[in-house]
Amino acid sequence: MTDTDLKPKPKTKTARPPLYKVILLNDDFTPRDFVTKVLKSVFRMNEGEALNVMMTAHQLGASVVAVFTKEIAEEKSQQANDMARDEGYPLAFTTEKE
């Protein structure tokens, strides 16, 4: 037998992916019922959550809807924007790095 010193292997940590916020931008033309419909269907919010996010956007000009990885944030933002465009509303969602 030989004496060998085994060096411990360095532990590699997997970095968490950066997170992105989906932001609802206020507009004065899209009906409230439609905004809550989009928030409930795309972001799976209940009625109270959807109303709260919508009213925050109305009062402050924008509201964070949810936080996801970049791909999911962009996908959900696009789904919500597509729903609005299909109905002819200017409702807009955007994403930004957290």
Rank of each mutant, 00 (worst) to 15 (best):
T36F: 02
E87A: 15
D5K: 15
Y89E: 08
V42I: 05
G61F: 14
E75G: 09
I23K: 06
P18S: 11
T4K: 07
V65Y: 05
T69I: 04
K37D: 08
A15P: 04
L24M: 06
L25F: 06
I72P: 04
E98M: 10
R85S: 07
F34V: 09
T30A: 10
V53I: 14
V42T: 06
L19T: 13
E75R: 14
F68R: 12
G61Q: 12
R16I: 07
L25K: 08
D3T: 15
L6C: 08
V67D: 12
F43T: 02
K70F: 01
N46G: 04
R16C: 01
G88H: 03
T2D: 13
Q59C: 03
V64F: 07
D82K: 06
S63M: 00
H58S: 02
A66W: 11
D86Q: 13
A92V: 06
M54R: 09
E75D: 13
I72G: 02
E71L: 10
N26E: 15
R32Y: 07
K13D: 12
E98P: 03
Q59G: 06
V38N: 03
V22F: 08
V22M: 07
K70T: 05
E96C: 04
T69E: 13
F43R: 06
V35H: 04
K97T: 08
A84V: 14
A15R: 15
G61P: 13
A66I: 02
A66G: 07
F93S: 00
D28Y: 07
V67S: 05
M55A: 14
R32M: 12
Y89H: 14
V53L: 00
T2S: 09
E47I: 12
T36E: 03
T69K: 05
K70P: 09
M45G: 00
T56D: 05
N26K: 15
A66N: 11
S63I: 05
T36A: 06
E49T: 11
L39M: 00
T30F: 11
P10L: 09
P90F: 08
K9N: 11
A92T: 11
E74W: 07
H58W: 00
A84Y: 10
P31S: 01
A62N: 09
S77P: 00
I72M: 10
D5V: 14
Q59S: 09
P18Q: 03
K7P: 03
E47N: 14
K40Q: 04
Y89N: 02
K21G: 03
T12M: 08
E98R: 11
N46E: 06
V38E: 14
M54Y: 06
A50M: 02
T94V: 13
A66Q: 04
D86T: 10
S63C: 11
V67N: 02
T4N: 15
V67L: 02
V64C: 07
M1A: 13
N26C: 04
L60K: 14
V38W: 03
P90A: 10
N52E: 08
K70C: 02
A57Y: 05
V35N: 00
P90K: 13
K70H: 12
E49P: 00
